[in-house]
Nucleic acid binder design. Structure first.
Length: 546
RNA sequence: GCGCCCGUAGCUCAGUGGAUCAGAGCAGCAGACUUCGGAUCUGCCGGUCGGGGGUUCGAAUCCCUCCGGGCGCGCCA
């Protein structure tokens, strides 16, 4: 919204002059450079073969604008055009924010488009571990961001309940089950799942079945497997629930086998000459697709490797007609995603619709040094434990607050801090503080929703706050388009800071005139909307009291 | 060895198509309202943007190279 008007003015001027360029508008770093600026003249310089400042002059001459909104146009430096805004503009922005109300910040830019976001996708072999938290937070915030700009979003969870890992799970449970029955049964230390939860599952089996499963059979192992899957999934979903994360689709890898997609995918790859047999296994010729080496897609045992179902799955996702297909993966998937996409592309699918958000690993920091999260019992530390320790809000914010491609350092001391140094509390405090002002206003009998004259907001702190609030829709759009929740996190801090400064310098309820009180209350309300909506995008609550 | 990501202040990180670009938070130091929540605000200190080359009128940003860190490179997922 902030740059919209200027963009329009600039765009019209470009068109009038017959110049082809994006009307790019940016926020200058320094106040002295005005309220908005465009480097477009410099971008055109090479293309037109004219000095940038000359082009800037032409543009300024060609611009038509409302003199009550824009005070001055200046050419600066090598050829920037700086825009300086008048209070009338701020009043206009504030009025428009208020008019939009609770939906402020959201847009309809991508209305009618559909997106699929796949995230978490952990196999049901145990509880989520702390590292999963980053995937959860990023994926869910990305989904929320896409919704905020108009996409209809499907949240999807892909899981494998058929492979080797599930067999290991079944065997682990069975071993514990036998041990609980008092049998001297060996536990496979190399492949088995050693967590205490396995014993828990086994204990439930003892309660349900007594010693009826003692005989080692496929049938009994299948019962262990099913029990384990159900138990683990319940655990995972419970954890996600605590983070306010809900998937729409749980896609079962196993279904790809039963419905023939696996066989069909192999056939299609074969038709394109990309499949051959060697050493008793079936290979895909990924070297023909420009990759380093060929890979096995069906082992000599007849079992497919994970690649094949991955390829089939992506074909399915792409054939659903979504405009955008987002995969949120940890950095350890880097190798496979290339292979999968190359194969899918070779099968004729438009993989430009696929965006992969590859996040780097997480390091936990305590007393300034990396350390391994653990519990006193020596038992594995889970994502659930982290939520227990820090609260869902802190967990979601911390995992989403950095760009995905950075190796996230999760500072446990800062996260544990229940004070202003913790960025989550800083944001929530600003929100609670506004709520408190409104509670007081109500007690004083002030008509909070009454008419407000925004032209009365002329204090520098007021203008600064409006300027920040005005950026919000741009920020949401940019964050959504770059699939980067951290942009929202950064912005919210700026917004909260601008509010606190305003709060400190301008009394709201104690303002000299009633009209000013109402105008400032309206500004506070707009701030509250921005904070609430922004926090929502990150999956963090906006408490009224703390 | 090969592929991808990262290297910016003591620490954690921004820097959106090269340009008005040396920035924020934390830590440290010094201050602030008799009043709407001090979980706040204001100021100061602090950096050869990993090193070196190159392109350019101009490079944290683009190219090359070296160094350092992470993750991969399975008939595991």
């Amino acid at each position: 919204m902030f740059f919209e008007y200027i963009r329009t003015v600039l765009g019209n001027a470009l068109e009038r002059l017959g110049y082809r360029a994006e009307p790019h508008v940016e926020l200058p770093r320094h106040e002295s450079h005005g309220d908005a600026a465009t480097p477009v003249a410099m971008q055109l310089a090479k293309q037109l073969g004219k000095p940038p400042r000359t082009i800037a002059e032409e543009l300024i001459a060609a611009m038509e604008y409302d003199p009550s909104m824009i005070a001055a146009l200046e050419i600066a430096g090598p050829g920037f055009i700086n825009f300086r805004l008048l209070p009338g503009y701020y009043a206009d922005v504030a009025r428009r924010i208020r008019a939009v109300g609770d939906r402020y910040g959201f847009s309809e830019r991508y209305i009618g488009k559909r997106a699929n976001v796949e995230y978490v996708s952990a196999n049901p072999t145990g509880p989520l571990h702390p590292g999963h938290g980053r995937n959860v937070a990023l994926g869910d915030s990305i989904a929320r961001l896409l919704e905020a700009v108009g996409y209809r979003v499907t949240r999807e969870y892909y899981f494998n309940n058929a492979g080797r890992q599930m067999q290991n799970l079944a065997r682990s449970i069975y071993a514990r089950y036998r041990q609980l029955l008092g049998d001297d049964y060996p536990f496979d230390d190399e492949n088995g799942y050693r967590g205490q939860y396995i014993v828990e599952i086994a204990r439930e089996l003892v309660e349900e079945y007594g010693d009826q499963l003692r005989e080692e059979s496929e049938e009994h192992l299948a019962i262990c497997r099913a029990k384990g899957e159900a138990w683990c999934f319940a655990s995972i979903r419970r954890t996600l629930e605590r983070l306010d994360v809900h998937h729409d689709v749980y896609f079962n890898e196993y279904s790809l086998y039963t419905d023939g997609h696996i066989a069909r995918t192999v056939e299609q790859l074969r038709q394109r000459g990309l499949v051959y047999e060697k050493d008793g296994a079936t290979w895909i010729a990924t070297t023909k697709l420009g990759l380093e080496q060929d890979r096995v897609i069906i082992k000599s045992t007849g079992e497919p490797t994970y690649r094949l179902p991955d390829i089939a799955y992506h074909c399915i996702k792409l054939s659903r007609g979504d405009d955008l297909v987002v995969d949120v993966f940890g950095a350890d998937h880097i190798a496979t995603i290339q292979e999968v996409l190359a194969a899918v592309r070779a099968l004729g699918y438009d993989t430009t619709r696929v965006k992969v958000v590859l996040h780097q690993m997480v390091t936990f920091l305590k007393d300034g040094v990396p350390y391994k999260l653990s519990k006193r019992s020596g038992e594995q530390y889970t994502l659930d434990d982290l939520i227990e320790e820090l609260g869902a809000d802190v967990v979601r914010y911390f995992f989403a607050m950095r760009a995905a491609e950075t190796q996230l350092v999760f500072d446990m001391d800062l996260a544990r801090e229940q004070s202003e140094t913790n960025p989550v509390f800083y944001l929530q405090y600003a929100h609670a503080r506004i709520c408190s002002v409104f509670a007081n206003a109500e007690q004083l009998g002030i008509d909070v929703s009454g008419h407000a004259d925004f032209h009365l907001l002329e204090h520098p702190a007021e203008c600064a706050l409006i300027k920040v609030l005005a950026q919000f829709p741009d920020v949401v759009l940019r964050a959504a388009e770059s699939l980067a929740p951290y942009i929202v996190a950064d912005y919210l801090h700026t917004a909260a800071e601008a509010f606190h400064t305003f709060y400190h310098e301008c009394r709201i309820l104690g303002a000299p005139r009633d009209e000013i009180v109402r105008a400032r209350l309206a500004l506070a309300q707009a701030t509250r909307t921005v904070l609430r909506n922004g926090l929502h995008l990150l999956g963090v609550s906006a408490p009224e009291r703390m």
